[in-house]
Nucleic acid binder design. Structure first.
Length: 202
DNA sequence: TCTTAGATGTGA
DNA sequence: CACATCTAAGAT
């Protein structure tokens, strides 16, 4: 089980080094193949930039704590809090390569295909039955909900983050090289077109 | 293979 | 009202 000291580093380092680790969650498990880093300072896409409650969460919890929230009214997002001095922030888990509890994950997702079982943050949370009730849980002390180190070094690629509208230029998404289980392949992120330009085009 | 619309809860 | 998404449906 990965200890708290792992999360006592900056968000980019943690996001990169979590690739290849195993995420264990109540009998299900998968290899982390896609993450994103969000920094508490200077990152307009981070919740801490526009949510007071997120800044308070960072202050009040130790590194290694789960930060779970609902997005678009229907998808739960799993993050882990990381802290290194004033370099604090979150790592968002975006995709897993399924390894254990696959039948259960298939039932929860209503999907047979392994490659799309956990290929996105909302899908991952649905497959593992992660909800707001897990917000604030310590992910460094319970063997049922924890991380396991990668058995061997993993080649990691970085890329633009997916689905955000601010700070879109930062290459803070990390992928296991060649993985077939990612949400969006390396180099395929679409940069959103600004509203003004869209209006001109029609 | 790619683009689009629509469903939906919550913080500020 | 924006939003760190997903899916089905239709166009290419």
């Amino acid at each position: 089980m990965i200890g708290r000291e792992f999360f006592q580093r900056d968000p980019l380092t943690c996001a990169r080094e979590l690739i290849g680790c195993e995420l264990r969650w109540d009998g299900c498990a998968g290899i982390v193949v896609e993450t994103e880093a969000y920094t508490a300072r200077g990152d307009e896409a981070s919740h801490t930039f526009f949510r007071k409650s997120a800044r308070e969460f960072v202050e009040k919890h130790p590194p290694g704590t789960a930060y779970v929230y609902l997005n678009y009214g229907m998808h739960w997002m799993l993050n882990v809090l990381v802290k290194h001095g004033d370099e604090e922030g979150f790592v968002l888990f975006r995709a897993l390569e399924p390894r254990r509890g696959i039948e259960l994950m298939r039932q929860r997702r209503g999907q047979e295909k392994l490659s799309t079982l956990c290929s996105g943050p909302g899908k991952l949370a649905q497959a593992l039955a992660i909800t707001g009730e897990h917000h604030g849980l310590d992910l460094c002390s319970d063997p049922e909900r924890c991380f396991v180190p990668a058995p061997a070094p993993v080649e990691v690629l970085s890329d633009l983050r997916v689905g955000i509208t601010k700070s879109t230029h930062l290459p803070w998404r990390f992928l296991k090289s060649g993985s077939l289980y990612a949400s969006v392949a390396h180099g395929k992120v679409k940069v959103p077109v600004p509203p003004a330009q869209r209006a001109r085009g029609r």
